[in-house]
Write a protein that binds this DNA or RNA. Structure first.
Length: 811
RNA sequence: GCCGAAGUGGCGGAAUGGCAGACGCACAACACUUAAAAUGUUGCGAGCUUUUGCUCAUGAGGGUUCGACUCCCUCCUUCGGCACCA
């Protein structure tokens, strides 16, 4: 048997597809649309390894399948091209990120084309292209004007030696990845987006999405809704009230102290003179700690009494106020009422500092550990003996009447820190104008002169749409400034500008946007990539959006998918688009690990390059193997040996094409229809591995096949192995312009079927019976079997009969 | 610690209440060949058995059921995610 010449065939068809534009999405077609999308990659310097294409091939199978099913398919690809590695590479080598990024994109594209992926390259987008990021900036301004952007001073990871801010991934074990210095915190002015304004909507929106339950659950946990109460604690001898959130207002009589986070804003007002120094020192200590350290598992609790007391609004008792780092500033109000009897952390803290413990829920046993369950109340005055769930409602209502508290909902979700002190990102299109600042602060401005964003961030003025894109200035020094600011801050000709509102002297914002910005909305742009007037034409938006099928790594379960959903909800409110969830159906890919079971990475030296595999076995064999190796959503180790199986299968298909008969045998015909059924169903459930297995069975078991039937088989194969299928199909234009084969229900059915005969649930024989035989008929045949007779001695208690499956005699 | 997923031949996996191991890899024997490779044919969970066949076997133990890889309980292991969340 001659192996087929994949090199020639694959190159030939890739060129034909490209020339004829077979896979271009048609803006004018009346056919129903299917938008099939990959998560676009960051074009790293390392190129693709064999793990990346798994998702791309899966998406490609679906896109080609949908096309043959009669859909007008949109299947684009692009580049998430801003990001840290390109900038770090520039710092090291002086090569401009734009240049290295362009080179990387070339390489990625070449590798993708070798695989034969059916992308519509006419719609390619690149997030670092000014024509693209013009619209990223446009969306930012829309959010800003809507009041969804605000400034805050927040700590960033800071390397005191490199004098630069660090991303979380650049901090390894609390040390700077580059120089090994201990990382500390530095407060920096940041832009923050109010994603929390959409907490409930983001939670509710998950309901109707066809996403893996696991991913939905992760988003729910991330949003972290909890219901409880806000309660005010009056500070003794002061006007200050400390607000806390609690999920257990029923335990309020057991609240014997308050704990504030070291970052709590009211701390300085209520700390006593004697304790001032001690508290300040504790705050400093906390600053040195990284979140990681602060959250270490069995770390001993630390804290400081601040010398002041608060009044428990229920019991009226005076309770001490502490500051401790186990209370986090971001969650709730950065302050808790501590109930040592019913919260383990509070109990540990109380034991260490000798604080009072009052049990208020009956637990039925001695309290060695905090009792966190439900029960009847005790030590709670008029609420005694009330069930804790009921007591929650009554106590909050009672506090509400006294104006000391109210029912409240709290979310774990935090607002999104949106600025980066970096060069290689989208410039934030704002200027700071002292003149306008004064105008806003003195309220001497006309109605509609300033937008909501400008009024709530005095001095910060939005660029006008006609001035977008605000492009990155060319620089050749990418080194960090040492002050924590972006390298852009050094480019004075760029920074100093005129205010678009008043024409006065102004300075540009030098922070840039995070990498997520471009990926929040790229799928919108694919529908209308070259539009210079609008972000997207309304008709095209209606035609293509939202995404019907989205495939990517589970590592994006929370951030990318959540941020993107947030932007879409805001854009819908502004009527830019008319859908409120971007990705209707989502499926995740299992990681491909190196043969050693480790993650593939350059540093481990275990990377397998798809180019080498394709050179040796061909793109079709590579594609078949990637889809055959195991369930699509499970992680799996690469095994180059096993690809031989895929190659042999294709060689066999090729051999069949050389011995075509005039008519197919009955056996072959039946098998063909069964295979069509199985492959169709499996593709719809992304069970690509079993779809391929059934095609292998088909090829292994046919005896005599005619060209028409062989072509039907090739259609099934074509979505997985497109090149060889095109070649053998001998098409007019392309096999992908043909329609997906249908199977005949009558042919699929077997008239005689084999069923299992069991005695006491153990298999003893199998017999052939007519399809749909009834119990009596099967019983008669089964009892004739000698094997069965051997086992049937004594009284038959009952017979279990499952039509077309089995008969079981219970003795 | 919590949440989630998973555990099946030498290996990747199939079967999600009804004949465990489809399909593939590796391996072995045979055929073709001067030879090797490639290809083809056959075999391939373990034990007992001359064959027929029998017994055991899906991480461990228990349970439900006529019947359990599949459902329930306890435990072990691995992988992922989250982690002092008030």
């Amino acid at each position: 048997m001659n192996p087929y010449d994949f090199k020639t065939i694959e190159k030939k068809w890739q060129e034909i597809w490209d020339k004829k534009g077979i896979f271009a999405a048609d803006d004018k077609s009346k056919r129903p649309k299917a938008y099939v999308l990959d998560m676009f990659p960051y074009p790293s310097g390392a190129g693709l390894h064999v793990g990346h294409p798994r998702g791309y091939i899966g998406t490609d199978v679906i896109a080609r399948f949908m096309k043959m099913k009669g859909y007008n398919v949109l299947h684009p690809m692009g580049w998430d091209a801003f990001g840290l590695p390109a900038e770090n590479y520039a710092i090291k080598t002086g090569i401009h990120p734009e240049i290295s990024t362009k080179e990387n994109i070339q390489r990625f594209k070449k590798q993708m084309n070798l695989i034969g992926l059916s992308y519509d390259w006419s719609r390619e987008v690149n997030t670092s292209d000014p024509e693209y990021y013009k619209w990223t900036q446009w969306i930012f301004l829309l959010l800003f004007k809507k009041g969804l952007a605000y400034q805050a001073v927040l700590p960033i990871n800071w390397c005191p030696s490199c004098k630069t801010g660090l991303a979380n991934e650049e901090v390894v074990n609390g040390k700077c990845e580059r120089c090994g210095t201990e990382v500390t915190k530095k407060n920096i002015r940041q832009w923050v987006l109010k994603i929390t304004a959409y907490s409930q909507q983001l939670l509710d929106g998950l309901e109707n999405l066809d996403w893996p339950e696991k991913i939905k659950e992760m988003q729910r946990n991330w949003i972290g809704k909890s219901e409880g109460a806000d309660i005010d604690f009056q500070v003794k001898d002061s006007d200050v009230k400390i607000k806390v959130f609690t999920t257990r207002p029923d335990t309020i009589f057991g609240a014997t102290f308050l704990v504030l986070a070291p970052e709590h804003p009211l701390l300085s007002q209520i700390v006593s003179k004697e304790k001032l120094e001690e508290v300040r020192q504790y705050q400093e200590e906390t600053k040195k700690k990284l979140d990681v350290d602060r959250q270490l598992e069995d770390k001993e609790k630390t804290g400081v009494f601040i010398g002041s007391y608060a009044i428990n609004p229920a019991s009226g008792k005076e309770i001490p106020i502490y500051v401790a780092d186990y209370v986090l500033p971001y969650y709730g109000y950065g302050a808790i009422m501590a109930v040592p009897a019913h919260d383990q952390r509070d109990m540990e803290f109380a034991k260490k500092y000798g604080l009072e413990t009052i049990q208020v829920i009956q637990s039925g046993k001695e309290l060695k550990e905090a009792y966190i369950g439900e029960g009847s109340l005790m030590n709670s005055k008029e609420f005694d003996n009330l069930d804790s769930l009921k007591a929650q409602k009554e106590i909050v209502s009672w506090l509400k009447k006294k104006k000391l508290g109210d029912f409240a909902v709290n979310y774990k979700l935090r607002d999104w820190v949106f600025s980066r002190q970096r060069y290689w990102g989208e410039p934030i299109p704002l200027v700071f104008c002292p003149n306008c600042k004064e105008k806003i602060e003195s309220k001497k401005y006309k109605k509609n002169e300033f937008n909501i964003g400008e009024i709530s961030n005095p001095g910060w003025i939005a660029l006008e749409e006609k001035d977008l894109p605000l492009t990155l200035p060319e620089i050749d020094k990418f080194q960090p400034t040492g002050t924590g600011e972006s390298p852009l801050a050094e480019v004075s000709y760029w920074v100093n500008t005129k205010c678009p509102k008043c024409g006065g002297e102004a300075k540009r914002e030098t922070n840039t946007m995070p990498q997520w910005a471009g990926s929040c909305w790229y799928f919108i742009r694919y529908a209308d990539p070259n539009n210079k007037e609008e972000i997207i034409d309304k008709n095209k938006a209606r035609k293509w959006l939202p995404v019907d099928f989205y495939i990517g790594g589970a590592e994006h379960a929370v951030l990318h998918l959540l941020y993107s959903r947030f932007w879409i909800k805001a854009l819908k409110e502004e009527k830019v688009i008319s859908f409120d969830e971007p990705f209707l159906k989502l499926r995740t890919i299992g990681l491909i690990l190196a043969p050693d079971g480790q993650k593939m990475s350059k540093s481990r030296g275990n990377v397998i390059n798809p180019d080498d595999i394709i050179k040796e076995y061909g793109a079709d064999a590579f594609r078949i193997y990637e889809m055959f190796m195991g369930p699509f959503d499970q992680p799996i180790s690469w095994d180059t040996k096993s690809i031989m199986g895929a190659k042999r299968f294709l060689d066999k298909v090729y051999a069949v094409s050389c011995s075509i008969a005039d008519v197919s045998s009955k056996k072959t015909e039946k098998l063909l229809h069964k295979t069509i059924k199985k492959v169709t169903e499996d593709i719809q459930e992304q069970k690509f591995n079993t779809a391929i297995a059934s095609m292998m069975e088909f090829i292994n078991n046919i005896d005599q096949i005619c060209f028409d039937d062989f072509r039907r088989f090739l259609k099934l194969l074509s979505v997985f192995a497109p090149h060889i299928s095109e070649e053998l199909y001998k098409p007019e234009s392309s096999i992908f312009n043909e329609s997906w084969p249908e199977y005949d229900k009558k042919i699929v059915i077997d008239e005689k079927i084999e069923i299992a005969v069991q005695v006491n649930g153990k298999l003893r024989d199998t017999i052939f019976v007519n399809l749909d035989s009834d119990e009596e008929e099967v019983k008669n045949i089964a009892l004739q079997s000698e094997k069965i007779q051997k086992y049937i001695e004594g009284e038959m208690k009952k017979t279990i009969f499952v039509k077309n499956k089995l008969i079981n005699f219970v003795i």
